[in-house]
Simulated assay, not measured.
Amino acid sequence: MPPSIHFHHAESAQALALDLAGFVAQQLRESLARRGQALLVVSGGSTPLPFFKALSGMALDWSRVCVTLADERWLPPDHADSNERLVREGLLQGLAAQAPFLPLFNGAASPEAAQATVSQALDGLPWPADVVVLGMGGDGHTASLFPHAPELADALAEGEGPRCLPVATPAAPNVPVPRLSLTRRALLDTRHLVIHVTGASKLALIKQAMQDGPVEPWPIRLALLQSQVPCEVFHAA
């Protein structure tokens, strides 16, 4: 096991949500004390909703915590499959309603048309992020970086490339719409990298993906097979 990976196990998804919310809130508090601001990058999907609700009630100065997404489906924010909608309804409530939020969907006709504007907006956030919270699909994708996708090589490139890239419509069972995804540059530009998963099959996939090998078959290796930043795996059965 790479020394930079730490596992946090909980007996239920709800207990895990509370553990993860406490961890993230502590990192945000430390950043607020140290530099007067903080940056949190979160992911969509169904898994993070209990975590969002737990985190939204954490006591900290949310007005100085910037929030953005690791990826977005190119859908309006009132669509059921919009990650922005999930964040607004799940996280940006109660105390956390004060947090400045940078959505990735900006109403442009396509992710390609939006990339330059969104990249510029992302550059204006207070990097490095304090926490980037990633999910993982059953195919090993993370953010909207899918196995063997044509844009994957550009998204994984090291150096000062763009912080986001357009992603073509992925194969089923993923939601069949194009996306905008943060790249390696942005996802690893953080003090703490978190992988948040539930279920035995995903834990088994993570352990398999921790073995040396190329990133292309399992893009979650972007987080697991790197020594740039500590990686915390939060898992519940």
Rank of each mutant, 00 (worst) to 15 (best):
T117I: 14
L28E: 04
E151R: 11
F52S: 05
L224C: 08
I206A: 06
Q27W: 04
Q26D: 15
P162W: 09
M58Q: 15
Q37D: 11
D19L: 10
A168L: 13
L69E: 00
A70D: 01
I195Q: 02
V67K: 02
H141G: 04
Q26C: 06
V24H: 00
H235R: 07
T190F: 02
L49N: 13
C66T: 09
P76G: 12
D81L: 08
E151H: 13
S63T: 09
C66F: 14
F7P: 00
P2M: 05
L75R: 13
V215C: 15
P173C: 13
T68S: 04
L203T: 10
W127R: 08
E151G: 03
D61I: 01
K53F: 00
G124I: 07
L188Y: 05
A96E: 01
G161V: 01
L224D: 02
V229Q: 02
W127P: 02
I220A: 02
R64M: 08
A168M: 13
T190P: 01
L60Y: 08
A54F: 07
V167F: 12
F23K: 00
L55N: 07
A237C: 11
G135W: 00
G138H: 15
A236L: 00
G36T: 06
V177H: 12
H79M: 12
R191V: 00
G22P: 06
A54D: 10
R163F: 04
V132C: 09
S110V: 07
L69C: 01
A236M: 00
C231S: 03
P178A: 13
G138T: 13
A116F: 07
A99E: 07
R179E: 09
F146Q: 09
P147K: 09
H235P: 01
D189L: 06
V24R: 06
W218S: 11
K207D: 11
A121W: 03
P214I: 01
A186T: 08
I5L: 10
L28D: 03
L187K: 11
R184T: 05
D130I: 09
N106Y: 07
L180V: 07
S4V: 02
S31R: 08
F52R: 10
L102V: 09
R85P: 09
